[in-house]
Design a protein around this nucleic acid. Sequence first.
DNA 1: GATTAGAACC
Length: 542
Amino acid sequence: MVSHDARWRQRETSASRNDIVIKFSEVVKNFSKKDPSSSSSCVPEVGARPRWPHPFDYNSLMKAFSHAGEVEEVLRLFREMKEDFHCGPDVVCYTSVVDSLATANRPEEAVAVFEEMVSAGVIPDTAAYTVLVKLYSCHLKRFDSAYEVIRWMTKCGCVPDVITYSTLIAGLCWADRVEEALGVLDQMLEEECRPNVHTYTPIVQAYCSRGRIEEARRLVDAMDAIGCPPNTVTYNVLIQALRKIRAFDEVEKLLKHSDAKGWKPDVVTYSIYMDGLCEFGRADKAWEQLQVMLGKGLRPNAVTVNILLDCLCRGSKAPEAKRLLERSAELEWDADVVNYNTVMSRLRDAGKWLSVLKLFSDMIKKGIATNSRTFSIVIHSLCKAGKLDWAKCIFNSRGFVANIVTYTTLIHYFHVAGKVDEAHALFYEMVEENVVPNQITYGVMVKCLCRERKFLEAIGCFYRSLEDGFSPNLFACLTYWLVRGKRLMEILSLLQWILRQGYIIDFCVVRGLINAFCREGCCQSREIYILSHVLDKILGTR
DNA sequence: GATTAGAACC
């Protein structure tokens, strides 16, 4: 069965499927009918049209699926290549698969495929080892292993190149180990491996994200001096940092001198700048930048449009944002699902459920693929307006993909409306549908059960939530309700159990408990004794 | 003809 999450991802990536189909048709042109009885060789005769898909073809397809985040398709093609066509993957194909798995955060499988390549007698090249470095450095932050891969590849006669080192440096920078990254840069220079703009930009970014703007500025200037001029991406990183500290004059200065410095601001540059202007209440100036962009022949993309729509919504102009979205085709804006979700969520917050429904209908008419987030916004909007029946009706409609947020929203509103049975039924349906409850869902359920004075069930629900880790907030919520229900003995045994498990009860939990006890007036005879015992347990004073 | 590195919105 396909999980909800996977179905959600399919919707999220539906736009990129078109690209895949185009690439697939190009590849298919090179394929003739599969003939399992003929020779298994995949190498065409000289001058003959290839009868079998070549590793090139497989690799093009695998890259397209990998780019769209469809790792299962990549793996299916990889298996097909090995089993159906008996055409052993070469180092390039193995590298694509390892990279795809690493990017999809499936490290064990990535390493297993790499090992399979070595066992199959395929010799890894620099690109293959670099993907392993990326896995350990950028994804797992296991730098000892990343260094080990570099030593190992060198021993095998494979020289690490500028990409290998830049990848390692990027990982170190993201892990806030800038000084160590600078050490790697020195090592590169010692080995006469010339750094490029990809090597320096992550370092500029690390300085920027830690507020070390002056060092970032100096490095950008130094890059020019050492013959590795910063490019648009480097400047975008710097501009993002300047925008955060509201140094808009400096951003203007950088843009003004861009020609002289040899770089061209792109749609990302203007989007960053406009987003900063919007965030700090300078919407008019942001819209001016849109004109500047258009004047340079740069078309706003979906991200730019989103920044502007969000800007309107923040300025209490959500209805205006809605009108722009509805006219997006005429304005030649490529409105996407995120744009609609942004405006719809703001309209939902403003209680404009009818406008939310109108935009939802507009999306469907325009053929813009909706996703779970869209449905959650629509459902939430209807629930907020007290239209639970309509919400349930849309929820039950065909083609609807509910996720954890949708379920939790509905459960919450059923609970608030006192429709406890429906709330419970949805919770069980969710579990049956393999949608895993999160701490927010458990919080709603605990409240729901406690309101009905089903304290033991609420405690059971809390124990179940521990599969997802201990949440002090959820624990505080449960104990608050137990105090209100005067279930002091239950609190005591729960606390004993929690402390035995080694979970940490923080200050917020203790304060919440004390407040709850005070509110309930638990200061008489036997109760005050139990209360004192409970507090001693928490504070470890007995 | 294919493989490895950096930036913006929700």
